[in-house]
Design a protein around this nucleic acid. Structure first.
Lengths: 254, 254
DNA sequence: AGATTTCATCCACAATATGGACACCACCCA
DNA sequence: TGGGTGGTGTCCATATTGTGGATGAAATCT
């Protein structure tokens, strides 16, 4: 769309993203469904990508997974994105002090992608969120925390075409509910997801800002509803904001 | 080549690999030269890849670097390739005990790619090798260590078309010299690169084997010539073999 | 054993990517 | 000042390339 004569590049990138969402792998049919492309096309692209080592075809399960070449390129790219070094200490502290699982997500276009996870000690854990999972902005606590601090114009343009943007999540996330959540997030500084994605699975998030003071990342916590009652929310929110602020400060400095 | 109707996929993968070789970025002209493609084509593909976030175009320097999407995909793929966890302890020990810089490389097709580096304490260091650098099999100590333990047929097929395979390195690495090095490597277990890539910059390597007992990875050390005199080679070789064996054992178990 | 779903491959067709050509810019040196 | 060099960005006619409907094989369910 952006560039002429680049149809395949877009399709390749789309497939890589889709495959990357499921660490356990995705079937051809699944990718056909999710990509909206025809089966022969998907099949040919997957085979080619596998020949280049960007994907692998697990013969036993028939599923497609990210290949060694992606790992290699990623480890080179990681030098330019030292998120692990910067975010891990905060995640550890959050997980240790709260007992919940802590996550670090990054904004990528109109989505958030979960990059890092630190398990908490609390024995009941939700697996809605894990490394590689993507949500539209405004969905899940991280995406809400980020969207709330975007320029109002950008927020409006997302809300204007909300059903298209939120896609599968639009049903559970009506535009007016999202609008309220964003407003609330701006008031308190942190976002709360009251089980909108999966009933009983709650989350809270806080945005981390880049040098241009744009919300580019987010820290978040997830757990079950009883652990996110109003009285505890304040405590969790304070911790999140503290760590988010610490990271923002470090990133401004660098 | 392998797959029909996939020209672009191959080209895209090629460009990503080329960009990944230089952490500081590569210019359009450089990529045109290295890829053998025409400039409009390279330009269009780069622009498209940048639009997808797989590359970034540094406006100030005009160079192309790996983008955030590669980082994200890579951090998902890293779960399937836990090299960091497995290799880092060995690298640390090697660097600590020898003072040289230690590297972990992975075989990828007919190349080796350097994935991990651990700096030694010795104050003179070579920067020929760093994360992302690729060499044809048989070039550099890691590639020699791996190639020496491939099935003889595969070695022969590489040597048969040596100038094409070794490309730029063919001049400094005549086929008969490489053949001798491989033979020597099989005798001692470890490889020695006596400054063939850059005069005075030596290296030694040892292969690490996968579940099918194929040489899939290599540990290596690099430093200046006086630190790799024959008397010390034995010491370094022993350490390398020890750590390589330890890693092989761990990988067989898993 | 038949029904259903998923995967693999073929091939005529035209949409798509290609690359020669041109325009532009920055820099260097006579 | 002006011509030379080396780099980047863009256009557009062309045919090479990728497309996807259709068909068959294979696996899985009923």
């Amino acid at each position: 769309m952006a560039v002429q004569g680049a149809q395949v590049v877009g399709r390749v990138a789309l497939l890589l993203r889709l495959v990357g969402r499921k660490p356990e792998g995705t079937s051809l049919a699944g990718l056909v469904r999710e990509s909206g492309l025809t089966r022969p096309t998907v099949h040919r692209l997957l085979t080619s990508l596998a020949a280049e080592g960007l994907l692998e075809h697990d013969m036993s399960s028939g599923k497609w997974v990210l290949g060694p070449e992606v790992f290699l390129l990623g480890s080179v790219a990681a030098a330019r994105f030292p998120m692990e070094d910067i975010a891990r200490p905060s995640l550890r502290r959050l997980a240790a002090e709260t007992g919940e699982s802590a996550f670090f997500s990054i904004r990528r276009g109109n989505e958030t992608v979960c990059v890092l996870r630190e398990e908490g000690s609390f024995p009941v854990r939700s697996f809605v969120l894990h490394e590689g999972v993507r949500f539209p902005l405004g969905v899940a606590s991280a995406g809400t925390a980020i969207m709330a601090f975007l320029p109002p114009k950008e927020q409006e343009s997302l809300l204007a075409d909300w059903p298209a943007h939120a896609a599968d999540f639009a049903a559970g996330h009506p535009a007016d509910v999202v609008r309220d959540n964003l407003e609330q997030t701006r008031l308190t500084g942190y976002s709360v997801n009251p089980g909108l994605i999966l009933e009983g699975s709650w989350g809270m998030g806080a945005a981390v800002f880049d040098q241009q003071t744009r919300p580019a990342w987010a820290l978040s916590l997830t757990g079950i509803e009883p652990r996110f009652r109003p009285d505890r929310q304040e405590f969790l929110g304070k911790l999140l904001l503290e760590e988010a602020h610490r990271m923002t400060a470090r990133l401004q400095g660098a």
